[in-house]
Amino acid sequence: MMHSSSETTYQAAKAVAKTIEEHFRNQLTKARAQGNNELAPEPSAAVIESIIDTLFWSSLRREEGVSPKISLAYVSPEQAGAPIIFEHRLELTSAVLAKLSPAVERPGVHLGVWQDEGKLYIWGATRVIPSLCFVLDVSAPALLVIKHRRIGGVGKFANVAVLKGDQVKVINEQAASLPDCPSLLATLLNFSSSYSDHDGVNILVQLAVSMRAHGRGGTLLIVQSGTDSWKKSIIHPILYSIAPAFHGLADLMRQEQSERSKSIWQGSLRNAVEGVAGLTAVDGATIITNEYELLAFGAKIGRPEGKPPIDKVVFTEPIVGNQPTTLSPAQRGGTRHLSAAQFVQDQPNAFALVASQDGAFTIYAWSACDEVVYAHRVDTLLL
């Protein structure tokens, strides 16, 4: 058993360790009760605290002028599939991690961390980890993301908490049960069973991640298929209108479930997602249907004649302790956010995904219960 180190100096590690321990204990207990046996080990609060503390200080180092990007997985070599195992164990220190980071910064590669006689060490690297494995990523200096691999192993890892400097944001697992919760937010927050979605993939989640990744900011509008009422909220002519609608993503999603497990299909899906997400970097909004048909990009949003300007938006963030706040849309974000909120108010069957250049990501959706536009900030779920 590992004991908490008195040398821990990153106070956020101490503050969050017990909460994270409880999260993993609850998830693993539920998974075992449902008959899942191929599960990761349960991390103790002491292990969590020590790993967070070490990784935080390593994130502030620079190796040859570059800040490290590292992913650590708390797993033994025996539970990792086809791992690279070092002949000699490496001490888990910030200096060692900074040196190793260039070798493991590619997506999907994790440094394996385990313990022996109460001391943590690095044993090697792996791409394969068991379900519900404790993973800690360095996304940027002083920005750490705690996550775990979903049961089933396909799709984005589930984020548990985000630590940025002395700020700790623990994901609120109950936010998805709120009335009128948008489908994208519900998918991102679906921690009740820690399973991936039934299709093994969620297009909107992947689009959101890809939109955020290009770093230019952008707007994606999702409208109802088979209707053109959305055109009333777009300034004409649309410079980059698509006719007929492009069905690349839609055709992939119509393929049989058996095809979706094949690497060719998954590669085609990644390319299609990146292609659509890339269009959002163009000034204006990209428009797709709820069946993933591409209709336009670079579209300018306008308020239809006779419609009132939006004067309030309810802002939320799926973080423990966050309370919804009603503000003018101009108080949170610039023109891109204001126009997206206006579009959703005028087209209540649609919703908007807005990526900011600084990495913020917001879902705008109409609440039929409260008859107001909600702005759900979800970048903590996309890291």
Rank of each mutant, 00 (worst) to 15 (best):
I234G: 05
S192T: 07
S261W: 12
S261L: 10
G298L: 09
R212V: 00
L252C: 03
I310D: 03
E293V: 00
V276N: 07
L221T: 00
I287T: 03
V273M: 09
K312Y: 03
F191L: 13
W265V: 03
F297W: 15
L204K: 02
S261C: 09
A208C: 08
S263R: 14
A245C: 09
L295C: 03
G200Y: 06
F297E: 02
N190C: 09
A272C: 11
M211W: 09
G200S: 06
E293H: 00
K307V: 03
V223C: 10
Q257T: 08
A285P: 05
Y195V: 05
I203H: 08
D251S: 09
I242E: 00
T289M: 12
G302S: 12
V201A: 13
T286A: 12
I288A: 07
S225V: 01
A245T: 04
L220I: 01
I301F: 09
I301E: 07
K232Q: 12
N271P: 02
L220S: 03
E256C: 12
A272F: 08
D197Q: 14
R260C: 06
M253E: 01
Q257Y: 13
E291K: 09
A281I: 08
S192D: 15
Y292Q: 05
E256A: 15
S225I: 00
E256N: 13
D311S: 15
S193I: 05
P308M: 11
S263I: 14
S229E: 14
A299K: 04
H236D: 12
D283V: 09
Y195M: 13
E274V: 04
S210E: 14
E293F: 00
L188A: 06
P309T: 10
T286P: 08
L207H: 11
S194M: 10
S233R: 01
R303C: 06
G306Y: 06
M211Q: 12
R270E: 15
S193K: 14
R212D: 04
S258P: 03
